[in-house]
C-alpha cells in the first residue's frame, strides 16, 4: 500500500465528495427507477387498465344519465381532467406511504444510502424525481386514452398533464412529510387512505362541480389540492371559464404545497437519519 499523508487523505475525500454533492439526487432516482423493474408489470397494467375502466364506467356509463353534460361540455370532458389528477395522486400516494416506512424500518435502505456520501435531502429529491417520472408517464397514458375517447376538445389540453403531475406531487410530499415521522406501524396508512385520499377523491369537484355541494362542504374543495389541480386541468382541456386570479391561485396553491411539503420531508429525513 502506498503511504499517504493525512493531507492527501483529506484532499482525496474532498475530491470524492464533489460528484455526489452535485448529482446525488439523480443517483437515488437512478436506483429507484431500477427498483421499479420489480413491479413494472403492475405499474403498466395500472397505467393502462385504470383509465379504461374509469372511462368506460364514467365517460360511457354514468355519462348516459347526464346527457346535457356539465357546464357546456360532455360529462366525459368534464370528468377527464379530474381522473388524470386522481391518477397522479394515486401514484404519488402509493410511492410516498409504504415505501417511506419501509425505507426507514422494514428494509432500511435509507440508512444504507446515507452511509455513502448521499444526504437525507438528496434521498428525498431522488425519490421525488422517480415519483414525478412515474406520475407523468401514467398521466400521459391516461391523456392519450382520453383523447381517443374524445374527451379533450381544446388544443392546450396537453397542459393538463403538467397540472395533474403537479397535483400528485403536491399531495405526495405532504404524505411523505407525515410518513417519514412514523416509527411504529399502527395502521396509519389505512387511516390515511380512508380519511385523507378517499374524501379528497369524492369531495374535490371530481364527479360534480363543487358548487353542487352545500356551502358548508365547499371549503373541503378549497383546501383540497385535488380540486385546484382538477380545475386547472379543466382550464387546459376545455377552457373552463373562471377568473384569471383563480387560475393563478390554483398554480400558486399547488406549488406552495409542494415546496413546503418537500422542505418538511427533507427536514424529517435528515433528522431521522442523524441518530
Amino acid at each position: 500500500m502506498t503511504v499517504q499523508t493525512i493531507r492527501e487523505d483529506s484532499a482525496r475525500a474532498i475530491a470524492g465528495g464533489v460528484a455526489p454533492r452535485r448529482w446525488g439526487s439523480w443517483y437515488i432516482a437512478e436506483h429507484r427507477i431500477r427498483a421499479m423493474k420489480g413491479y413494472a408489470g403492475d405499474a403498466i397494467f395500472q397505467s393502462f387498465g385504470n383509465p379504461l375502466i374509469y372511462l368506460f364506467a364514467l365517460g360511457v356509463g354514468l355519462a348516459s344519465l347526464v346527457p346535457q353534460g356539465v357546464g357546456g361540455v360532455t360529462y366525459l370532458q368534464f370528468v377527464a381532467p379530474a381522473l388524470m389528477a386522481t391518477a397522479a395522486m394515486t401514484v404519488a400516494a402509493n410511492e410516498t406511504s409504504y415505501p417511506v416506512l419501509m425505507g426507514f424500518k422494514w428494509n432500511p435502505i435509507f440508512f444504507g444510502m446515507n452511509a455513502s456520501p448521499i444526504t437525507g435531502a438528496q434521498i428525498v429529491n431522488g425519490m421525488m424525481i422517480q415519483i414525478a417520472l412515474r406520475a407523468v408517464v401514467t398521466v400521459a397514458i391516461y391523456f392519450g386514452v382520453i383523447v381517443l375517447f374524445g374527451g379533450v376538445p381544446s388544443a392546450t389540453g396537453w397542459l393538463a398533464i403538467g397540472a395533474a403531475t403537479l397535483t400528485g406531487m403536491a399531495i405526495g410530499v405532504v404524505i411523505s412529510s407525515y410518513t417519514s415521522t412514523i416509527t411504529e406501524d399502527r395502521g396509519q396508512m389505512a387511516m390515511l387512505q380512508r380519511f385523507g385520499i378517499t374524501p379528497l377523491f369524492l369531495f374535490s369537484g371530481t364527479f360534480f362541480p363543487l358548487e353542487q355541494l352545500p356551502i358548508y362542504l365547499q371549503p373541503i374543495g378549497w383546501i383540497s389540492p385535488l380540486w385546484h389541480g382538477t380545475e386547472l386541468g379543466r382550464v387546459a382541456t376545455y377552457g373552463l371559464e373562471e377568473p384569471i386570479w383563480l387560475t393563478v391561485t390554483h398554480v400558486g396553491y399547488l406549488t406552495t404545497l409542494f415546496l413546503v411539503g418537500l422542505w418538511a420531508t427533507r427536514k424529517h429525513f435528515t433528522r431521522r437519519l442523524n441518530k
Binding site: 487523505d9 482525496r12 475525500a13 474532498i14 470524492g16 465528495g17 455526489p20 454533492r21 446525488g24 436506483h31 427498483a35 428494509n107 432500511p108 435502505i109 440508512f111 444504507g112 452511509a115 455513502s116 456520501p117 448521499i118 444526504t119
Partner: peptide, 19 residues
C-alpha cells in the same frame, strides 16, 4: 465534511440494509 468523509468509507452496519 460528512459527504466527503463518507466518500472514503465502507460501512457494514449491524442490520443489513441491502435493497
Amino acid at each position: 465534511h460528512g459527504p466527503d468523509i463518507r466518500s472514503q468509507l465502507g460501512v457494514v452496519p449491524q442490520q443489513d440494509n441491502l435493497d
